[in-house]
Design a protein around this nucleic acid. Structure first.
Length: 208
DNA sequence: AATGAGGTCAACCGCCCAGTT
DNA sequence: CAACTGGGCGGTTGACCTCAT
């Protein structure tokens, strides 16, 4: 289980978890490569970060996804496409990896989503970083609309030439979307204070 | 009881970007 | 300015589990 690089791979042991946890308690998150060096943990920094973020962090919620979470993820996925970190950011206690796995194993089947023939708009992580600051304040103190919203309409899936996918929008449709459409789609994302699971219920009523 | 198929999910990989030197 | 480093992202893999036969 040890690579030529000297790093271990595969599942984490209880002892490794303990070392990682202790280090984070003492020094805080970040500096993952330093963590690996200083603790003698035979894991690369990335692996340490992933383990913490997806498993050890106390903010991570374990267990089955609730109906509300499913519903929220489905709606967010409609708007954002496969931007799992953004979606996860709106689902309290869930990580991008959890959301991604849950989508791929449960929700995509539930919805009958085929393996996509589409590509997402603005798949780069750059987009996430541009958008993120506008999303992550629960009090919505910074409701500045994202840049280039039309172009990147929330990452909705775009049908490639000739492909058909009922969950996707065509490029033409995409180009016709106005800024106000964008904001409307995004509006619920700013309703973080909403006790009804971040605007989920209000969205439901809009739909019906 | 054995085993093969399918499902699940933790972890890895490759890429990208931002910050630092 | 280029090179390097650290961190984050989405896609993919593979070990493990469950269930049907």
């Amino acid at each position: 289980m040890e690579e030529r690089s000297g790093y271990r791979k595969g599942l984490w042991t209880v002892e490794e978890d303990r070392i990682l946890e202790n280090y984070v308690k003492l020094h805080g998150k970040g500096k993952w490569n330093r963590l690996a060096r200083e603790t003698g943990l035979k894991r690369c920094g990335k692996s340490c970060r992933l383990r913490w973020v997806n498993y050890l962090s106390p903010s991570v919620k374990r267990g089955d996804f609730s109906e509300e979470e499913d519903d929220l993820i489905i709606r967010l996925h409609n708007l954002l496409g496969n931007r799992w970190s953004l979606i996860a950011g709106r689902v309290p206690g869930r990580t991008d990896n959890q959301v991604k796995n849950h989508w791929n194993t449960h929700l995509s089947k539930k919805l009958g989503v085929k393996k996509p023939k589409y590509k997402t708009v603005a798949t780069s992580s750059r987009f996430s970083r541009e958008l993120e600051p506008n999303f992550d304040t629960p009090s919505c103190s910074n409701p500045k609309p994202p840049p280039t919203c039309n172009e990147e309409i929330i990452g909705q899936n775009v049908v490639e030439d000739g492909a058909s996918d009922e969950n996707a929008v065509s490029l033409n449709e995409l180009q016709e979307l106005s800024m106000s459409d964008c904001f409307e789609n995004l509006a619920f994302l700013f309703s973080y204070d909403d006790p009804n699971l971040y605007g989920l219920n209000s969205m439901k009523s809009q739909d019906s």
